[in-house]
């Protein structure tokens, strides 16, 4: 009897602890730092520069969220995660959000209990092979030894693709992009497969990028999306609308340079609502009204972030393609701010 009472007390205590942990936004504010999960290093998306400062496309989103919530884009603790450790890190609360080219799938969203807040890069799985192999199509890859990062959707797509086309292959599971690169360059695998953007980023770091080609086939849809834990909608809203603010900013021409000036008020009410000179959108989110302005001023709008990290002027040289604004034939489409 006594024992069961004691258990009851402990249960209540643990439930209370669980409820307290659900308020991620308050946790982040109290901590003064955002714990953001990124890759262990993929140039252009998330990698430390020569001074050890993280930079990249995914990193920029972490910084934008930190700026919106905490007022400073540098108040981020970057937690490098591998394909295998990322979900455990998020589920256990070690990180507040995951911005690590992670594909939005049904089972991750529903079964793994995560909440994807919106797509920040529309990608697809591709193949990279050395030119000297003379392969021009993924269907010619019969018998190839293929390097894949383990614990990713690419691993499953790969099995499905080769099975559907009835061709054989040998998978070589690898933990990180760096190891895959080493094995691929040494010829220990004939083919390297991952998201096409990742392939482009990896190839850009090669000594002779011209010796390797990306095959034309894109064998899967890989909508890469930042995600948070399921069941904390307030926090999910903050991350979702920070991303939407960056996308809308590009649509309405708000840039890093002119955000300050435009926030004084403009003729376009939508811009005013985003930048906080009209309405109380920020307060509804549990932030102040200048949240989006701060987010935009860290690294610029979506287009600026894209161009600075992975765009055509960078060594990675990805074109906007599907990731252009809907007004320009792409898929980027932010819900309205009102």
């Amino acid at each position: 009897m006594k024992k069961s009472v004691y258990f009851g007390v402990l249960t209540v205590a643990s439930l209370a602890a669980g409820a307290a942990a659900a308020g991620t936004l308050d946790d982040v504010k109290a901590r003064g730092k955002l714990n953001c999960g990124v890759t262990t290093g993929l140039v252009g998306f998330a990698a430390p520069d020569a001074n050890g400062v993280w930079e990249g496309f995914d990193v920029a989103l972490c910084r934008a969220v930190a700026a919106a919530v905490l007022g400073d884009g540098n108040s981020v603790e970057f937690v490098p995660t591998t394909g295998k450790t990322r979900f455990t890190a998020l589920a256990s609360g070690e990180i507040d959000m995951l911005a690590r080219n992670t594909t939005w799938t049904f089972s991750r969203d529903v079964d793994l209990k995560f909440e994807f807040v919106g797509v920040n890069y529309y990608d697809g799985q591709g193949f990279m092979v050395p030119k000297e192999l003379g392969v021009t199509s993924a269907k010619d890859l019969d018998g190839a030894t293929v390097c894949i990062q383990t614990g990713t959707t690419t691993e499953l797509n790969l099995a499905d693709f080769f099975r559907a086309n009835n061709i054989s292959y040998e998978p070589v599971p690898i933990e990180t992009n760096a190891e895959a690169q080493q094995q691929y360059l040494a010829g220990a695998c004939d083919v390297y497969t991952t998201d096409a953007s990742g392939l482009a980023a990896t190839r850009a770091t090669f000594e002779k990028p011209g010796d390797h080609i990306l095959l034309p086939e894109i064998i899967s849809k890989e909508p890469l999306a930042p995600l948070v834990r399921h069941g904390d909608s307030e926090w999910a809203d903050v991350v979702r609308w920070t991303l939407n603010a960056l996308i809308s900013a590009e649509e309405y021409g708000i840039t890093k340079a002119n955000a300050e000036e435009m926030s004084k008020g403009s003729d376009n009410p939508e811009i005013n609502r985003i930048l906080g000179s009209e309405g109380t959108l920020g307060e509804m989110l549990g932030l102040d009204n200048a949240w989006a302005k701060r987010a935009i001023m860290v690294g610029g709008n979506y287009g600026e972030i894209f161009d600075a990290n992975i765009g055509e002027s960078t060594p990675i040289a990805l074109s906007r393609g599907l990731n252009a604004q809907w007004t320009k034939g792409g898929l980027l489409y932010s819900p309205p701010f009102r």
């Binding site: 258990f7 402990l10 249960t11 643990s14 439930l15 669980g18 589920a91 209990k113 691993e155 499953l156 790969l158 099995a159 499905d160 080769f162 292959y169 040998e170 998978p171 070589v172 599971p173 399921h230 069941g231």
Partner: peptide, 29 residues
């Protein structure tokens, strides 16, 4: 144990070994 069970239940992921019968969908070399 009770803490783990409670937290898993709160996450909506009670202990379940049913996934073993699902197709693995990956290859082993």
């Amino acid at each position: 144990i009770s803490n783990t069970m409670n937290n898993l239940a709160a996450l909506g992921k009670p202990i379940d070994f049913g996934f073993f019968a699902e197709p693995a969908s990956y290859d082993i070399n």
